[in-house]
């Protein structure tokens, strides 16, 4: 993802509509997609996006020149997601151990995500490089599923292979990516581990 967009803090401070529209257009999709993946509820994810931008609106007058707006928005959205997941975990604690564990791991996973969007982007860059370096048949399946959100069934149809094959390729792609990124993923883990 390119981050060529520059944000004019002065215009944000003044509440300039088109400047907000610009940053909203540029970044709300990323936040929505991130929230959706952790929360699995589009309505809640949408609400989190709205609340995140409203926070920016509320504090706009105190923005310092040079503030990285993306980092700011990313942190707010991440915290909203964490709060939501924690609420869910508490609610499920006494009802279903497995459900509560699932939330617990979601929280841990999200906690490990970089504390700033800059850090997150860095990881994304590496992941994309690793995906680009996958063997053709694996890359094809992986990107159709993860980028274009196609189901195994549709991928199988499109490529004229069985669903089992699609699943096997996905699994293999994941294994390769994991190995390629092994120096990078555990590193993040150790950094964020200090904060728990």
């Amino acid at each position: 993802m390119e981050t060529g967009l520059t944000v004019n803090i002065d215009l944000l401070k003044r509440g300039d509509k088109s400047e907000y529209e610009k940053i909203y257009h540029d970044f709300s999709g990323v936040l929505f997609s991130l929230s959706c993946q952790y929360i699995n509820d589009q309505m809640v994810a949408e609400e989190i996006v709205q609340e995140t931008f409203l926070k920016l609106w509320e504090v706009k007058e105190a923005l310092l020149p040079g503030t990285n707006i993306r980092n700011f928005l990313y942190t707010i959205a991440k915290n909203h997601c964490l709060n939501h997941l924690r609420d869910q975990q508490t609610a499920w604690k006494h009802l279903s151990r497995i459900q509560a564990l699932e939330y617990q791991y979601a929280i841990e996973s999200l906690n490990r995500m970089g504390d700033s969007y800059t850090e997150f982007e860095e990881l994304q860059k590496r992941v994309n490089e690793a995906i680009a370096a996958l063997p053709d048949d694996l890359r094809e399946v992986f990107t159709l599923n993860r980028f274009e959100e196609l189901r195994y069934k549709d991928i199988a149809q499109r490529l004229g292979v069985s669903e089992k094959t699609v699943e096997a390729r996905m699994s293999k792609a994941l294994r390769i990516l994991r190995a390629e990124l092994k120096d990078y993923l555990p590193l993040l883990y150790m950094i964020s581990n200090l904060f728990f």
């Binding site: 997609s33 996973s109 994309n128």
Partner: peptide, 16 residues
């Protein structure tokens, strides 16, 4: 957790 991270990051490419 590493794989989950990888999974999430790769999912954010779907042209949000």
């Amino acid at each position: 957790l590493s794989l989950k991270e990888l999974w999430i990051v790769s999912g954010l490419n779907s042209n949000p």
